[in-house]
Design a protein around this nucleic acid. Structure first.
Length: 588
RNA sequence: GCGCCUGUAGCUCAGCUGGAUAGAGCAACGGACUUCUAAUCCGUAGGUCGCAGGUUCGAAUCCUGCCAGGCGUACCA
C-alpha cells in the first residue's frame, strides 16, 4: 500500500462513516495534521461540512466519530471540538512512509503534474561591463532553484542566460581601457577578467566627472560599434571574452548552470520587424512625434489624466528600437527556437511594469502563449546604507562574498579539528559547500517578493535558520548510518510498531509533508517554502537526536526501526537542499 | 496623482486559498557534552499581528478607508 493509498484509505473511511451518520458523502474534506502529536497523527476539520449538513462542525465531528470503527489501520479516532483526530497504528504509519521514501530515494517528493511540458527559465542576465554582485546571486539562486523545482514536478526546463553585451554602458569600459589601459590585460594585472573590465567602468565614471566630453566620445564609440567598425568590434570582443572568462569562474563557484546563452548583440534588432508587421495590422500606431506606439488596454492599465489610453513606445522616429522592442523579439525567438509551452523571466521587481506591458503586447499581437509567460519578480537586496549601486561602489561583490563565506566556513572547520587531522583539500572541499550553502539558503529562505536587508556584519551565519544547520543534520545522520553499516538493516525485518514517541512522530510528519511543500513551491514560484520546510525537518531531527539514541537504543529491533526513520530523513534533507541548489556533506 | 510590493516579538522573517493556545531564528538570560558530531538541544523572557471600520459562528489571513516605507510610472536597460 502506498502513502497515497493510506491517505485515501483514511478519507474513504471517514466518507463512509459520514454517510452512515448523516446520510450523505461529504463534499470536500482535507487530511491535515493536529497542532501537536499527542492529539493524533492526522486531523480532519469538519468546518466545510457545516453548510452541507446544517449542523455545527462539532456536532458533525461527534456523529462521524461514532460511526468509525477501529481496524487494522486506524487505531482510534478522537473528537476535539470540530476536529476528528485520527491515530494510525505505528507499524502501518511509520512502515508505509519510511519504506516508500527509502525505496523512492532521490525521487521522493517528485510528481508529474508538469506532464513533461517544456519551458524556459531565463535568469541572471548580467551586463558585461562589471562583475556580478549580491543581487545577481539572489537572481541566480532563485533561477537555479525554481528550475530544479520545475524539473522535480515533471516539467522540462531550459535554463537560459540572456547577456546584455552591448550598449553605451559597455562602451564606457571599452573607452576607458583604450584610452588609459596602455595594453594591460587581466593576466598582466592579475585580475579576474570581469573585475578587470569593471575597473575600467569605474575609471570611466571618475574621468567623466572631470571631463564631460568623454560622454560624447562614448556615444561616437557606440555608433562605430553599431556600424561594425572592425577596431571597435575587436576591442568589444576582446573585453567581453575577458568578462565571460570571469563569469564562468563565478558560475562554477556558485553552482550556476545554463543550457543556452543569448546575447543581446544578436537579438537587439529582432523586435523591429514584428512591430512593423503589427503596424500594418493596426496593432500599433504612430503618435504625434512619429514614434511607433502601443496603446495599453484601459481596463487593465488605467488611463492618463487626459483620459486617453496609456501607451508604450516601441520604435523611435528614426526606427531605432527600445528595450521592450528587443524583449518582444527575444521572447518570440526563445519560444520558437525551443518549442516552449511556458517562459519564466527571473527579474527584479522594479521591472514588473515592463513585463506586464511586454506580455500584454505579445498577447495583442496574437501570441496565445503570452498567457504562459511569467515574471518571477523578486525584491531588492539592500545594504545598510541603501540600495546597491555599482557606480557608487556601494555593492557586495559576488566573488568577494563567496570567498569570505568560504573562509569563515574553513575557520569554523579548523576550530572543530584541533588536532589538524583534516587535509587542506578536505577543508577546502567542505568549506566551499558550507559557505555556498549558507549564502544560497540565506537568499532563498524568504519569499521572493520580500526585499532583503543585507547586513554584512551579521546577516549570514551558520547557526539557526541557515543552510549549514540543515547540512549538519544530514551529516549527523550520515555519521550514524556509516557506523551502522555492519548491522545493515533490512526493511522487511523492521518492527515499526516500536516507533511513535513525540519526536519520532513530529519527524515523520515533516517527511510526509515534503511532497506537498514541493507542490506549494512550484505553484507559488516560491523556493522559500522548501527552505522553511527543510529547516523544520532538520530541527525535528535534531530534537529527536538529542532525546533518543539510534545505535544505542534499548533493543536491536528499535535500532533497526530508527535507522530506517533517519535514513528516510536523510533522503528528504538531501532532496530538499538539492532543490535549493545546495549540496550536502557527509562530514562536517 | 496612479499602479505594484511591504508593514507580525528588540532585530530578520514564517504563517496570509479564513479555523485548535500567533510560530521560528538572531540578540538577552539560565541550563545540558564520561552517551550515535554541542554548526546541537532544553528552559526563561519578549506580540494592541501598522491604524480604523466591515463581512463571518470564527479574521494576522477576505473587503473598504487611512498611515508609513520601497519600487515603478511611455521615447534608459
Amino acid at each position: 500500500m502506498s502513502v497515497q493509498k493510506l491517505k485515501e484509505t483514511i478519507l474513504n473511511k471517514i466518507n463512509r462513516a459520514t454517510e452512515k451518520a448523516l446520510g450523505q458523502i461529504p463534499e470536500h474534506l482535507e487530511l491535515g495534521f493536529p497542532p501537536n502529536t499527542e492529539l493524533g497523527h492526522f486531523a480532519v476539520g469538519c468546518f466545510p461540512l457545516a453548510k452541507q449538513f446544517r449542523k455545527s462542525p462539532a456536532e458533525i465531528a461527534k456523529k462521524i466519530s461514532e460511526k468509525i470503527t477501529p481496524d487494522d489501520v486506524i487505531q482510534e479516532v478522537n473528537v476535539s471540538g470540530p476536529y476528528l483526530n485520527i491515530s494510525i497504528f505505528p507499524d502501518v504509519l511509520f512502515g508505509k512512509f519510511c519504506s516508500e521514501i527509502i525505496s523512492e530515494n532521490n525521487k521522493y517528493g517528485e510528481s508529474s503534474v508538469g506532464q513533461g511540458t517544456r519551458g524556459m527559465v531565463e535568469f541572471l542576465s548580467p551586463n558585461t561591463n562589471k562583475p556580478l554582485h549580491l543581487g545577481h546571486l539572489r537572481n541566480g539562486a532563485l533561477g537555479m532553484s525554481i528550475s530544479k523545482i520545475l524539473e522535480a514536478t515533471g516539467h522540462w526546463v531550459v535554463k537560459a542566460n540572456l547577456i546584455n553585451d552591448r550598449g553605451v554602458h559597455i562602451c564606457k569600459s571599452m573607452l576607458a581601457w583604450k584610452r588609459w589601459g596602455d595594453g594591460s590585460t587581466p593576466e598582466s594585472e592579475g585580475l579576474k577578467g570581469d573585475h578587470f573590465v569593471g575597473s575600467w567602468y569605474v575609471r570611466f565614471a571618475q574621468e567623466a566627472d572631470k571631463n564631460q566630453t568623454i560622454e560624447d566620445d562614448v556615444q561616437i564609440m557606440l555608433q562605430q560599434w553599431e556600424a561594425g567598425d572592425p577596431e571597435t568590434v575587436k576591442c568589444w570582443e576582446t573585453m567581453n571574452n575577458w568578462v565571460y572568462d570571469g563569469f564562468a569562474e563565478t558560475y562554477k563557484n556558485f553552482g550556476l548552470e545554463f543550457d543556452v546563452f543569448y546575447y543581446e548583440s544578436d537579438t537587439y534588432k529582432m523586435g523591429k520587424d514584428v512591430v512593423q508587421k503589427g503596424l500594418g495590422k493596426n496593432v500599433f500606431s504612430k503618435d504625434d512625434h512619429d514614434n511607433t506606439v502601443f496603446h495599453l488596454p484601459v481596463a487593465e492599465f488605467g488611463q492618463e489624466k487626459g483620459g486617453e489610453a496609456k501607451k508604450v513606445t516601441l520604435l523611435r522616429p528614426d526606427d531605432t528600437s527600445l528595450y521592450i522592442t528587443q524583449d518582444i523579439g527575444a521572447s518570440i525567438l526563445k519560444i520558437e527556437e525551443h518549442k516552449l509551452y511556458f517562459s519564466i523571466y527571473v527579474v527584479g521587481s522594479e521591472q514588473e511594469y515592463h513585463f506586464k506591458c511586454l506580455f500584454q503586447i505579445l498577447s495583442s499581437i496574437g501570441y496565445e502563449w503570452a498567457k504562459d509567460c511569467h515574471h518571477l519578480s523578486y525584491g531588492m537586496v539592500y545594504l545598510p546604507e541603501g540600495k546597491m549601486k555599482s557606480r557608487e561602489g556601494k555593492i557586495v561583490d559576488a566573488d568577494v562574498l563567496i570567498a569570505e563565506m568560504k573562509k569563515l566556513a574553513a575557520d569554523e572547520i579548523r576550530q572543530r579539528d584541533p588536532e589538524g587531522l583534516l587535509s587542506d583539500d578536505e577543508i577546502n572541499h567542505r568549506a566551499k559547500k558550507i559557505g555556498i550553502g549558507a549564502i544560497k539558503f540565506y537568499l532563498l529562505r524568504v519569499r521572493p517578493t520580500q526585499s532583503i536587508n543585507f547586513d554584512p556584519a551579521e546577516s549570514i551565519s551558520f547557526d539557526g535558520f541557515t543552510g549549514p544547520y540543515c547540512q549538519y543534520a544530514y551529516a549527523r545522520i550520515f555519521g550514524i548510518l556509516a557506523k551502522a553499516q555492519d548491522s545493515a538493516f533490512n526493511l522487511q525485518d523492521c518492527d515499526f510498531s516500536l516507533l511513535g514517541n513525540a519526536q519520532e512522530l513530529l519527524l515523520l510528519q515533516k517527511l510526509i509533508q515534503f511532497p506537498e511543500e514541493i507542490n506549494n513551491a512550484v505553484q507559488g514560484f516560491n523556493p522559500s517554502k522548501i527552505a522553511v520546510h527543510i529547516f523544520n525537518t532538520a530541527k525535528a531531527f535534531n530534537q529527536f537526536y538529542n532525546k533518543h539514541h539510534v545505535l544505542r537504543a534499548e533493543n536491536e529491533k528499535l535500532v533497526t526501526a530508527r535507522l530506517a526513520l533517519i535514513k528516510a530523513t536523510a533522503i528528504v534533507l538531501k532532496k530538499g537542499l538539492n532543490l535549493l541548489g545546495i549540496e550536502v556533506l557527509e562530514n562536517m
